[in-house]
Amino acid sequence: MQRFVVLPTTRTGWLLLAAFVAVIGAGIWPVIGWINRATLLLGLPLIVVWSYLVIFACVAVMAIANHCIEWEDEPHE
């Protein structure tokens, strides 16, 4: 039992895990270092714009994941 763990069991599951990891990676180092510039975009500091992009990317990833889960739960021929 010591080698058993919970991991995704389908290709969709792995893709969703990769998407979750990607949005988390987007908000931390080293990515945050790449956008760490004192420039403005749409009137806001680049880090602020990036932070809200990451935040809305989280919404998008979860919305897609909901769609996948509900599609898997529905009966298919």
Partner: peptide
Amino acid sequence: LSFGAVFERIQAEHGEFLTL
């Protein structure tokens, strides 16, 4: 009503507040 005017002034006078 634009936040841009606030940050343009910060960028010009206190750029260190816009980065880590």
